[in-house]
């Protein structure tokens, strides 16, 4: 939660500086963000590659556990596709790209900004932050009415880090492992799926 507030703060500070033109316009050059993005992708890769739990779980190759991130992907895309017909001013393709962040707002909003521009990037940032926040708030209810996998599904990619403590608190340690696994798979899938949808 603290990390997301931090991110919102930096984002708002950026909006503020941009709105009042506080910084020289050279800062607005997108070449800078491309370098920063490449660095970020490399670092995210190091984080995933160095995660021992992930490799152990992939080695065990449990079929049931693979269904969890798979059901999150299918459910997310289906749910968003259905609701996107209500929305005006946004295409199905753009909606699917936004929700394919699975709550991984930092990376998804940056990639989408690169590929489609700031308007959709902001939508991705907000939508994915909402996903994390609603998981943090709704987990007790989700567990009560939809079972132990529900908060893991709702958390999406965040179920491996930011929402993990609250998920473990309400479901137990054994679901913590499923949660980490599902989060890692979705974190890996998100950048590829976004790029694929917007290609």
């Amino acid at each position: 939660m603290r990390a997301s507030l931090f991110i919102v703060f930096f984002f708002s500070a950026g909006i503020f500086c941009g709105y009042y033109s506080l910084l020289p316009s050279a800062m607005n050059d997108s070449a800078l963000s491309i370098y920063a993005l490449n660095l970020l992708l490399f670092l995210v890769g190091i984080g995933i590659g160095s995660n021992n739990t992930a490799w152990d779980m992939i080695k065990k190759n449990n079929a049931g556990i693979l269904l969890v991130p798979l059901s999150v992907i299918v459910g997310t895309l289906l749910g968003a596709a259905l609701l996107s017909f209500w929305l005006t001013g946004i295409t199905l393709r753009d909606s699917l790209a936004v929700v394919s962040g699975f709550g991984y707002y930092s990376l998804s909003s940056i990639i989408i900004t690169r590929l489609e521009g700031e308007a959709l990037g902001v939508l991705a940032l907000l939508s994915n932050i909402f996903r994390e926040i609603s998981t943090l708030l709704l987990t007790p209810l989700l567990v009560k009415y939809f079972g132990h996998l529900a908060p893991i599904a709702s958390g999406g990619a965040t179920s491996m880090d930011t929402t993990l403590p609250v998920i473990i608190r309400f479901t137990g340690k054994e679901y913590g492992i499923i949660s980490i696994f599902s989060g890692i798979v979705l974190t890996l899938v998100a950048p590829f799926l976004i790029t694929f949808i917007l290609a």
Binding site: V98, V99, F102
Partner: peptide, 17 residues
Amino acid sequence: QALVLTAGSVSGSVMIS
């Protein structure tokens, strides 16, 4: 729009799960 998309993706994935 962001809120609607979040609602869709959360409820969809919770149902399937």
